[in-house]
Write a protein that binds this DNA or RNA. Structure first.
Length: 337
DNA sequence: AAGTAATCCAACCGCATCACG
DNA sequence: GCGTGATGCGGTTGGATTACT
């Protein structure tokens, strides 16, 4: 698809390049051009970058493509249960502040989170015939959906085998420790050393661990994690593993064989995780949300994991979450509030 | 197998804010 | 202080894919 650029209303004469701007899906060649240019010159100054790289794209388009797709630390694949839980919680706190929420889900872009919210969460609201921002729906999320997610995370954690990664939680210091292959990493600071393969997010796990501890008496979680094929990695929302349209050279890039700015850094933006570490939610923040995440009256601990309202016929608990029984429970819940 | 509906998500748009001369 | 360009953010769109009939 090739679309001519718009003529500015001030009628200034546009250069040939500006008049020939491309729009629509990016080609592999364009991706490679952008990747190569950023590998050699770094990112920023997107308009001039687009011109210098020989891309007939706007700077905006280049920036978006890089940030949402080509950046090496962009995480592909399903939104995990932990991530779902975190998104629900953080959205309850900040609303549609997608970029802010994305800061707490390393590798996830604001766009991806926004899409998740619009497609999955709003779908549930639609099924309930209520507004996604209504108190009714927020309560349903808080008292039905989120506890169920916690249960499933716990279930996945306890049944996991072949563990390569453990996550522990230290209440006093609000520190999450990740251990992989006998190497220990603390919080985000060393996340970059995980070579983009291990994808445990301490922000998520801190929240999840905290909730598990406070609601289930679990103080230490051992968590097996294989992003594309694990009980927690596979979202109950069924969307397939995405294959990036990349060539061998791009694969080299993903395998960290391309250096950035000649400094051998795998991450073009080394401050990325430091910022997240700096903004990290505290443990108390996590378990004491402004809305009162788990009130004592709600005894989720005693809930049977296989109560009918939790599962549909397929055992799927997300897409089919709002079945008839859920609706009834939801109604009862609404009436009691 | 074919047609249709539903869903997903990459990309675009407009607006707000920031940085700089 | 003002103008301009760059950047960032949230909302929306539309093509591709998947599910359903």
């Amino acid at each position: 698809m090739e679309v001519k650029g718009r003529v500015c209303n001030n009628s200034t004469i546009q250069s040939e390049d500006e008049m020939d701007l491309r729009r629509g899906p990016w080609t592999v060649d364009e991706d490679l051009a952008l990747i190569n240019y950023i590998a050699n010159h770094g990112e920023g100054r997107w308009n001039s970058l687009a011109r210098s790289a020989g891309l007939k794209r706007t700077g905006k388009s280049c920036r978006l493509r890089w940030l949402n797709y080509l950046r090496p630390d962009v995480r592909r694949g399903n939104i995990t249960l932990e991530e779902q839980l975190l998104i629900l919680e953080l959205h309850g706190r900040w609303g549609n502040r997608w970029s802010k929420i994305a800061q707490y889900l390393p590798g996830r872009t604001d766009n991806e989170i926004k899409n998740y919210w619009r497609t999955r969460v709003q779908k549930h609201a639609k099924q309930l015939k209520c507004d996604v921002n209504s108190k009714q729906f927020k309560d349903a999320m808080r008292y039905l959906w989120m506890p169920r997610l916690v249960e499933r995370i716990q279930a996945a954690a306890t049944t996991a085998t072949a563990t390569t990664t453990t996550t522990s939680y230290s209440p006093g210091s609000a520190t999450t420790t990740i251990t992989k292959n006998n190497t220990t990493y603390n919080n985000y600071e060393k996340n970059n050393n995980l070579n983009n393969n291990i994808e445990v997010h301490s922000g998520n796990m801190m929240l999840s661990s905290a909730i598990m501890k406070s609601n289930f008496g679990v103080s230490h979680v051992t968590h097996s994690y294989t992003p594309e094929n694990s009980s927690t990695g596979a979202s109950s929302d069924s969307f397939g593993t995405q294959v990036s349209p990349v060539s061998d050279m791009t694969q080299d890039y993903y395998n960290n064989n391309v250096t950035f700015g000649g400094n051998n850094s795998n991450n073009p933006n080394p401050d990325y995780y430091h910022q997240q570490a700096h903004d990290q939610l505290s443990f108390l923040d996590c378990i004491t949300s402004p809305s009162g995440f788990f009130p004592h009256e709600m005894d989720f601990q005693s809930m049977e994991p296989n109560t009918p309202w939790i599962q549909n016929n397929n055992g799927d608990t997300s897409n089919g979450f709002w079945n008839v029984e859920n609706m009834l429970l939801f109604q009862q819940l609404s009436e009691n509030m």
